[in-house]
């Protein structure tokens, strides 16, 4: 029984892994479906006599629906799950058990961060693959190289989000406080990213990379944000370990 297995059991036995995989899979399956039949659905639920005309859906529309839902509700689930593991000082008596048996908080933090980031990536990959398959069936094929690169960029963003939770959890103790502040910071970054050219450098731009790439955006455009996300993730985890080690229980 190691701290790695502890984090794995936390995900499995508390059904948090099911929640992450389930939510992304659900949006992966329903995204292309709603894109394919949106026109028909609106026609049925709209007022009688009103006809809604939409352009015929293209394969990229299936991914758009998935990314839209995954980047909001999916990200929220990932952050809540990550906060529940990374805010390990939230309950003192529970924290004492592990904190007094390690030399450094890093020993607790690295497995918790890695396992939760991996779970987030797994969820996003499963959802993306489901969306890709269903898009191919309902709307037509997606460019494989661009799709895979988009999935990689989206996964990197989730790693950054989990690292952000780790850093915030090192400063505040509560699970909900850590999750709430992390969400707020990511939202602020997203808003800032929409102003001027800064967005190209911010990790939040990776959220829409999958959709943009299947719509023929230049993959190189996302390299700065990817580099920043990778560097920032490492820095945030380092910060979390440094601050967490100094925190008193």
């Amino acid at each position: 029984m190691s701290l790695w297995r502890l984090e794995w059991l936390r995900l499995v036995r508390t059904r948090r892994l099911v929640a992450i995989l389930g939510i992304y899979l659900f949006f992966g399956l329903t995204g292309p479906l709603s894109a394919r039949y949106l026109s028909a659905i609106l026609g049925r639920v709209g007022p009688p006599g009103v006809k809604i005309e939409l352009p015929p859906p293209v394969p990229a529309d299936g991914v758009t629906q998935f990314v839209s839902n995954a980047s909001q509700i999916g990200l929220l689930v990932v952050i809540l799950v990550a906060a529940s593991a990374l805010a390990f000082d939230a309950r003192r008596e529970m924290a004492v058990f592990v904190r007094t048996r390690v030399d450094s908080v890093r020993e607790i933090l690295v497995p918790a961060f890695t396992v939760n980031a991996a779970a987030a990536i797994a969820g996003f990959v499963v959802g993306s693959l489901a969306a890709w398959y269903e898009t191919a069936v309902l709307l037509g094929g997606l460019p494989p190289g661009r799709t895979l690169l988009g999935i990689a960029y989206g996964s990197l963003y989730l790693v950054f989000a989990v690292a952000m939770v780790a850093a915030v959890a090192a400063v505040v103790r509560g699970v909900l406080a850590a999750a709430g502040i992390a969400v707020t910071i990511l939202l602020v970054l997203a808003v800032v990213g929409n102003i001027g050219a800064a967005g190209r450098w911010l990790p939040t731009s990776l959220v829409g990379a999958l959709e943009a790439l299947v719509r023929n955006a230049d993959p190189v455009d996302y390299l700065p944000a990817a580099a920043i996300a990778a560097a920032a993730s490492a820095a945030l985890v380092w910060f979390a370990a440094a601050v967490g080690t100094r925190r008193e229980l």
């Binding site: 059991l9 008596e93 004492v96």
Partner: peptide, 10 residues
């Protein structure tokens, strides 16, 4: 500690 606690699913 005076009231030891552990992850309840262990």
């Amino acid at each position: 500690p005076d009231t030891p606690q552990f992850d309840p699913w262990l």
